[in-house]
Design a protein around this nucleic acid. Structure first.
Lengths: 230, 230
DNA sequence: TCCAATGCAAGAGCAGTGCTCTCGAATTTT
DNA sequence: AAAATTCGAGAGCACTGCTCTTGCATTGGA
């Protein structure tokens, strides 16, 4: 208990080692993908023995969980920064900016994107811990629609009869101030955005779409129209 | 070269063993997912030694490729059947039927769906062999739009200026008889459909969307409107 | 200040993986 | 009938995640 934060050198060492493990793991993840992320290889690269690593992460899945949360945060932050940069613009422009940020991040971190929006790790279900980080992009999109609604420039999408009760429930759950039609459209658009990003990233657009940026911009602009933004 | 098909008992045996391997592999795939599909476990279950399996599939990835093609075909056939069942209906109804078939198949075969539309196997790029099987659903959707266009009931979607050249190119590539705006919208809708299906399947809709069928039907109906169907 | 409790790295070991190679035996082909 | 091929079996290599034990270093309390 000499001077500053965190009791002792041991605690500090633990934090540093934990960070170093995540860093090296992220490097391997970016290089080879989640499937080939090996605890032993991480340990080897760090000059420690594999069993020592289990003092920091009780299993491979726990390491992955840590990386997943970091990935969500990294994506969320990038989207927030991009959104802030066009804060004054009209809703459609802001919507497109957020979507392009998501796509840009995915292109820059394909394996991390695959980790959070690709096939879930088998037998692994994301712990509740990931929820806040995972929600950041969604909250951004909700905010854009909310602003448009407040400014009375939202063209509330129509709702089919059979969906009314569910849309009302969804709106009540996480955006009580928005019209149910807009909330339902928003959730659908949210999923569709990741369909566009994922298809491009996973090669489904190969030999099909050449000019990716204009295509993506066009598609997400129409997505914005679909939720009632103008 | 005695009487019937396939020269000799050896060739016949090869076909049967190959089929048995795929069958058992598909069982394990359905039970545990692609990541846990083990050649040794397949061989063990079949009462053969693991090295023998390499006479039939030179690597694990080759086995996966075979399963991928089968999965595409299984999905494509289900979509085609569903489409044929509503052949006389209006374009939107036919579109929705195909989309619901895709979703239904995905629900019934989650791991196979993940195999073809989830994270690609690292270091693995789908061989050209998979293309025909993979195109079946897409061809179905193109056909619906084409019929609407022939009947003059297609409301051709608008195209942003910057996308015109690319849309023209895409149309020229695989649907020269359709207006570029419709083709661009179609490709986007195609990706968005899989975004909806994937999000539900991979748990992204958990604690968010409860009434999945109406929600999905509503979303894909709006997708149909988006490509100009009425 | 000394001492017991705890944290942690190292090593051996287990059960599993994909894949390769060699060796006989069975089956085709010549 | 002889030669060529196909194939199953077994051993083995290099790797994986994970567990358990051992001994040393740090820590916090008496």
């Amino acid at each position: 208990m000499s001077s500053n934060a965190a009791q002792g050198a041991r605690a500090r060492a633990r934090i540093e080692v934990t960070a170093a493990i995540k860093e090296e793991a992220r490097r391997q993840l970016a290089a080879e993908g989640a499937a080939k992320l090996s605890l032993r290889a991480v340990a080897r690269e760090l000059g420690m023995v594999s069993s020592a690593l289990y003092r920091y992460f009780p299993s491979r899945d726990d390491l992955l969980t840590a990386l997943i949360i970091d990935a969500y945060d990294s994506l969320g932050e990038r989207a927030e920064v991009a959104h802030a940069a066009v804060a004054g613009a009209d809703p459609v422009r802001r919507w497109v900016a957020v979507c392009e940020a998501v796509r840009g991040w995915a292109q820059a971190h394909p394996h991390e994107y695959a980790l959070i929006y690709g096939t879930p790790v088998p037998g692994y279900s994301a712990p509740q811990t990931t929820v806040p980080a995972a929600s950041r992009v969604g909250l951004l999109l909700i905010g854009i629609v909310r602003d448009a609604h407040r400014l009375q420039v939202l063209e509330v999408p129509l709702l089919s009869d059979e969906l009314v009760p569910e849309a009302v429930r969804m709106a009540g759950d996480f955006a009580p101030d928005l019209p149910p039609g807009a909330v339902a459209a928003l959730v659908a658009a949210w999923a569709q955005l990741y369909g566009l990003v994922g298809f491009e990233l996973f090669g489904q657009f190969n030999r099909m779409v050449e000019e990716r940026e204009p295509f993506f911009r066009h598609a997400v602009t129409r997505l914005a129209y679909g939720v009632g933004l103008r």
